[in-house]
Amino acid sequence: MMRAVAAILRRDLALSFRAGGGAGIGVIFFLCVVMVVPFAIGPDQKLLTSIGPAILWIGALLASLLGLDRIFGADAEDGSLDLLLLAPLPLEVIAFTKALAHWLATGLPLVIATPLLGLLLGVEFNALCAAALMLLVGTPAIAFLGSIGAALTATLPRAGLLIAVLIVPFTIPVLIFGTAATAVAITEASFFGTAFKLLLALALFSFVIGPVAAAAALRIGRGA
């Protein structure tokens, strides 16, 4: 089974990073969101510094929603999904692996880009570390919750916006505890407060409910 899991992981990552895969576009979009905010509210450095972590969270959330449709949509288009469904491997494991590959290709680059983009907003060094750490926990939660929406709409063409609309309500807790944990880490210089523990719990919860619900959605979609 590990061999099959490794094969899915390897294939999905290769597809993301090769030409036409679009793995880097999420980071560019993240940069766009971060850049647009000062234009709208003005180049007030003090204000930007104080709301910087929140902007980073909103940017990362929006960028994570982008491209969720590729988790299952591309495989549904070319018939690969049929063969994945027939593979001698629990569908939950397949869904977990594909969501993980999606996060590695699109979510992890966002986390890595966070400190750089934070500099644009004048966020302090310790706040940058805090935001990046919290996003390291928060973005997988968003990706795994998002995989449910991706599975529900796998057979629909151009489901990208629909998935975003479906998934945003479920990511609100992640946003609440993620920003709260970031704020606590900045003001009290302690990373492991209640908010962080709750964020961690949400991430772990999403690792379970995401693949289970996604697998159920794929089964219903195909009658398997």
Binding site: M35, P38, P43, Q45, L48, L119, L120, L121, G122
Partner: peptide, 14 residues
């Protein structure tokens, strides 16, 4: 600061 939303730097960012 490392970044100031100065007109010319911002244009370069765009």
């Amino acid at each position: 600061t490392y970044w100031e939303w100065d007109g010319r730097l911002t244009s370069m960012l765009v």
